Amino acid sequence: MNTQALGVEYYLAGMRAALDDLPPNEVAEIMEDVEAHVAELSTELGENETLEQRLGSPEQYAQELRQAAGYPPRTERLPVTTKKQLVTRPRVAAWGLAIATAVTLLAGTAVLRQSAILLLPAVLLVLSLALVHDRGPAQQEIMDLPETRKIQQWLTPEEGTPGERALTYLKSLQPAWWLVRAGLLGLGAVLLASRDILGFLFIAGIAVLSVFAGPRAKVDRRWLWFSLPASALAVGLLFQVIDVTANNLAYSPSRQVYQPPAMQSYENVYAYDENGKLLTNVLLYDQDGNPINAPRQYYGCHGDDPQPMIPANRYPRPKIDYENGTCYTVAPSVVAPSSTESTPPSSSGSAPSSSVAPTSVSPSK
């Protein structure tokens, strides 16, 4: 806060102290008309000129306003001996604003899934603002709270320090943030448009009003009850959009792990010699000497008779007839090419003329 602003706040605080014998709503009515005038007059002061030189002391100016408004002369208040109240309207309103802003930030991260969640912070904001709306644009009672003054001290670093330069730079970005905030809120409204028309209208209205509320809150602090939660809602929406986008990228089909095609499995293998003769009882092994096994296991041919299993790498696989207890080899339905043929064999729906007759085989041990 610069020296000029501090001078205005000090002068207005002196005026309120001179009017504190009047009812709070009447003080707010007087100060509401004066604050803008004093702030504007402060910008017209010369380099070494003060508000006191233009308007007189705060007490004198307050007395003039009192007489002009037809109020009686000031009466001194009796000393207050009672203990100062901890729970006051300004304190409840200030904490209501802080809590509602935090709740709005959390609600913003879930508003695209359930927009009705915004009703909770909205109720808190309306109730807290109703407590102090009649105290005028400056909301000086809230600004005089100890917790508020601590925040002001934290946000007012010493001149020339890196913190002061950083804060000055951030303040210069406020107009840009107001536009970004409206854009984020507008994006949230668009995402809700197809499935929640009430949520769309509600957030779209907040987006439009937030453009006006940003600069207005600098001269009328009652707009903070809208501007701060609107900023929290925009940040919450940003977090949710980032989360949804990251999830969509993580599960995008173009980024999934490549799945190689499944290897084709075979139930039987038929081996022929160079003359096209079907070979039987052929044992197959890979390059490491491991059996190349068929996917199915073949047991004995006599039902429950405990005969040894036929080796899973013996081809062709015999067909097992459990009714008569025999095992026999079935010829393939495709004629094998001879060593002199250059064209692939043609398939036929019937058994080939040179098919191999069924051969009885015994289970191998």
Rank of each mutant, 00 (worst) to 15 (best):
M1F: 10
M1S: 11
M1N: 05
V8R: 01
Y10Q: 13
Y11L: 04
M15K: 05
M15E: 08
R16I: 12
A17K: 13
P23V: 08
E26Y: 06
E29Q: 12
V34N: 00
V38Q: 00
V38M: 09
L41K: 10
S42N: 06
E49T: 13
Q53E: 15
L55W: 01
G56I: 04
P58T: 02
E64N: 12
L65M: 13
A69K: 15
G70A: 11
P79T: 07
T81F: 14
T82N: 09
T82K: 11
V87N: 05
L97H: 02
L97D: 01
T101F: 06
A102Y: 01
A102T: 10
V103D: 01
R113W: 10
L125A: 06
S128M: 09
H133K: 07
H133W: 11
G136K: 02
A138D: 09
A138V: 04
I142Y: 00
D144G: 06
P146Y: 06
P146W: 09
Q152K: 14
E158G: 14
G160Q: 04
G163A: 15
G163Q: 11
A166F: 07
A166D: 02
L170C: 04
K171S: 05
S172F: 02
L173M: 13
L173Q: 08
P175A: 12
W178C: 08
A182Y: 03
A182S: 14
G186E: 00
G188V: 08
D196I: 04
I203K: 10
I206F: 10
V208F: 13
L209F: 14
S210N: 04
G214H: 01
A217R: 06
V219I: 14
R222W: 02
L224H: 04
S231T: 10
A234M: 03
A234G: 01
V235Y: 05
V235T: 04
F239P: 00
V241D: 00
V241I: 15
T245Q: 14
L249N: 08
P253W: 04
P260V: 10
P260A: 14
V269K: 03
A271I: 13
T280L: 14
L283N: 08
D286V: 01
Q287E: 10
Q287S: 14
I292T: 07
N293R: 15
A294L: 11
A294C: 09
Y298S: 09
G300R: 04
D305I: 05
Q307V: 03
Q307E: 15
P311F: 12
A312F: 02
N313G: 08
R314W: 06
P316L: 11
P316S: 11
P316W: 05
V335G: 00
A336Q: 03
S338D: 09
S342T: 14
P345H: 08
P345A: 12
S346T: 13
S346K: 13
G349C: 00
G349P: 02
S350N: 08
S354C: 05
S355Q: 10
S355H: 08
S355G: 05
A357Y: 03
P358D: 12
S360N: 12
P363Y: 07
S364I: 09
